[in-house]
Computed example of a mutant assay.
Amino acid sequence: MLKPPLYQLAYDEGLGTVYTAHYRPTEGQVTYAWPNATWPQSFTTFTPGTRTMTLGLS
Rank of each mutant, 00 (worst) to 15 (best):
L15D: 06
P5H: 07
Y7Q: 07
A21Y: 05
P48L: 03
S58I: 08
P25R: 00
Q41P: 05
T17W: 04
G56Q: 12
A21Q: 12
R24K: 14
R51P: 02
G16C: 09
K3H: 02
Y7A: 09
E13Y: 11
V30D: 00
V30I: 08
T26N: 12
W34Q: 01
P40M: 10
A10C: 06
G49K: 05
F43H: 13
K3R: 04
G49Y: 06
S58G: 02
M53C: 10
E27W: 08
Y32V: 01
G14C: 07
T20I: 07
G49S: 09
L2F: 07
V30N: 02
R24L: 14
S58Q: 06
Q41F: 04
H22T: 14
T38S: 13
L9D: 09
L55A: 09
P40D: 11
Y11S: 00
A37C: 05
T31H: 01
P4R: 12
V30H: 01
G14T: 03
W39K: 02
Y19A: 15
D12T: 09
T26Y: 13
G49T: 04
V18E: 13
R51N: 12
P35K: 03
M53K: 05
L57D: 13
E13Q: 13
G49L: 05
P48V: 00
F46C: 11
A21T: 12
W39G: 00
P25I: 00
G28H: 02
T17V: 11
H22Q: 13
L15F: 05
T54K: 15
T26V: 13
E27S: 14
F43G: 08
L55W: 08
N36H: 14
E13L: 10
L6K: 10
Y23R: 15
L2S: 08
A33K: 11
G56S: 10
Q41G: 02
T47P: 06
L57G: 13
W39P: 00
T31A: 02
Y23D: 11
A21I: 15
N36D: 15
Y19E: 03
T50K: 12
P25G: 02
V30C: 08
Q29P: 03
S58L: 06
R24E: 14
M1H: 06
P4I: 05
F46L: 14
G28V: 04
T20H: 08
T31N: 03
L9F: 08
P35C: 06
G28P: 03
A10N: 11
G49I: 08
S42Q: 11
P35T: 03
L57A: 10
D12V: 03
Q8H: 12
S42G: 05
L9Y: 11
A33Q: 14
M53W: 11
H22F: 14
P48M: 01
R24Y: 15
P25T: 02
T38R: 07
F46H: 11
T31F: 01
A10V: 01
T44E: 12
S58H: 07
N36Y: 15
H22I: 14
P40S: 10
W39F: 05
L9R: 07
Y23G: 11
D12I: 03
G14D: 10
P25E: 01
F43Q: 10
Y7V: 03
P4E: 11
H22S: 15
S42A: 13
L6C: 07
Y7L: 07
L57V: 15
P35N: 12
Y23C: 13
S58C: 04
Y32M: 04
Y19Q: 06
G28A: 05
